[in-house]
Write a protein that binds this DNA or RNA. Structure first.
Length: 268
DNA sequence: ATGGTGGATGTTCCA
């Protein structure tokens, strides 16, 4: 049965970590790679690099210094132009494509949700308000498309929705990424038509992280992680979920990102 | 309670 492996990684500068993409390919052998925080304007995108690794089809949306998303694919892609300009900021946090997958096209959404700053208060911290507005808009947009199928949504959603998606639920309830307005908002977005593909494999009572701060000297020993990176699929694809990998070893790669790649395989 | 590290940028912002 043909399989489709989709990986997602907040690479935190595509140009700086271009060599690590080869490691990602060696470890996961993905058919499609979704990247966030590429931090590269479209005019400076390293267009030759994906092809050299076997990914001849790319779509990307970048800007100077911040944000930026890209999809690298072995399979043909067709970019989707349907999605709105979230929060009218034109800030390169979403790119969508139709992937020419076995058994028919799959709609793939790659998101980089705003981090939201430090203070979990709309009035004091506009970045937090922007984050909540962003996930409210995306939720509303998907809610207007009931019954959509063969879709996958991935990315750095910058929210750890479940109790065991953080190292200490109680200590992080007031920390941006795990506050109730965020976790409830993210869950509502997911419930517009997706299931959590990684929690399909890993019970909700088990700790699971994809991000460890740079600010911990020994990230593995302290293990104060959060699950910020996600893969969602529409329910019609749930039965096809065949494998998942959270590439924790990538956190020890030289000069790596603070996020690790997450990969899901579908038997199509 | 604070600061810890890292990337892009440019004398600071963002995460």
């Amino acid at each position: 049965m043909p399989s489709l492996r989709i990986a997602t990684w907040n690479i935190n500068s595509l140009r700086l970590r271009l060599p690590l993409l080869k490691e990602l390919v060696a470890a996961l052998d993905p058919d499609v790679i979704c990247l966030q925080e590429t931090k590269v304007p479209d005019a400076l995108f390293p267009v030759e690099a994906p092809g050299a690794l076997g990914y001849d089809h790319t779509v990307f949306r970048g800007m100077k210094g911040y944000n930026g998303v890209a999809i690298l694919s072995r399979l043909p892609l067709e970019v989707h132009e349907a999605a709105p300009d979230w929060c009218a900021k034109d800030d390169c946090r979403h790119v969508a494509a139709r992937v020419d997958a076995p058994g028919g096209p799959i709609e793939l959404h790659n998101f980089y949700v705003p981090a939201g700053g430090d203070v979990p208060d709309r009035a004091m911290n506009p970045k937090y308000g922007h984050k909540l507005d962003f996930i409210a808009e995306t939720r509303a947009w998907f809610a207007e498309r009931p019954g959509f199928t063969r879709s996958v949504l991935v990315g750095d959603l910058n929210i750890a929705p479940l109790e065991h998606d953080v190292w200490s639920h109680k200590q992080l309830l007031d920390v941006v990424s795990h506050t109730p307005p965020e976790t409830e908002g993210l869950t509502a977005w997911q419930e517009t038509g997706f299931v959590d593909a990684v929690r399909h494999f890993v019970p909700s009572g088990q700790k699971l992280y994809t991000w460890w701060s740079y600010r911990n000297r020994d990230w593995r020993a302290s293990d104060r992680g959060r699950r910020l990176d996600h893969v969602w699929v529409t329910p019609d694809l749930q039965g096809a979920l065949s494998k998942h990998v959270i590439l924790k070893d990538a956190r020890d790669w030289p000069q790596t990102s603070d996020h690790v790649p997450v990969c899901v395989e579908l038997a199509l």
